[in-house]
Amino acid sequence: MQLLSSSIGRKIVMAITGLLMILFVVVHLIGNTTIFGWISGGINAYAHHLHAFPPLVWAFRAFMLAAVSIHIWYGIQLTIENRGGRSQPYAVKATQKATFASENMIWTGLLLLCFIIYHLLHFTMKVVPGMALVPDAEGAINVFTMVVSSFQNFFVAFIYVAAMVTLFLHLSHGIQSFFQTMGWSTDRTLPVYVKAGTLVALVLFLGYVAVPLSIFAGILKG
């Protein structure tokens, strides 16, 4: 297929799978904020409803796994292809527009992969030690207690905050890249996408770190 034989096509696939992950991350954050209790029953009720229909949960997991896998696969492939694109480095490095985020997408991406694996082992499979797993009468784990007890540990809170810094870097380049790769940007809109993308990445960062920080600071208590 011509789409996948060209690097432009593979990048369009990366852009679309990346967008799926951005949308996931936005919805995930909205879900997280229920820990502050703005829906009745808080995060426990949210978690209960989210997992109410297991076939849908598993179908969605498979879908996200496919998106994440494709994104990573092409990301690694493009990085390897670009190695040696410049026959040898210049004696003086004088980049004018490239940023730390744009130059390190592969590393922030792979760090996020490590984090996702850790995060799944932590709150989905619940096999990371050091958190309180309190079942209710129906055997469902109390999510609020689990999360609060986890983030009272400095190292766990630190890992999550560090991972969100990584997410911020990845998205600050990734969101504007989406528009450029899809061919939806012009000289007037690209600077807006760059700023808006960084802003969205910043809002996501602040939203996500609000949970571990407010627990670690003792504002949210178990």
Binding site: S7, E81, G85, A98, T99, S102, S177
Partner: peptide
């Protein structure tokens, strides 16, 4: 030639 990674250099 390499691929574009949107550095805009």
């Amino acid at each position: 030639f390499g691929n574009c990674t949107n550095h805009y250099e």
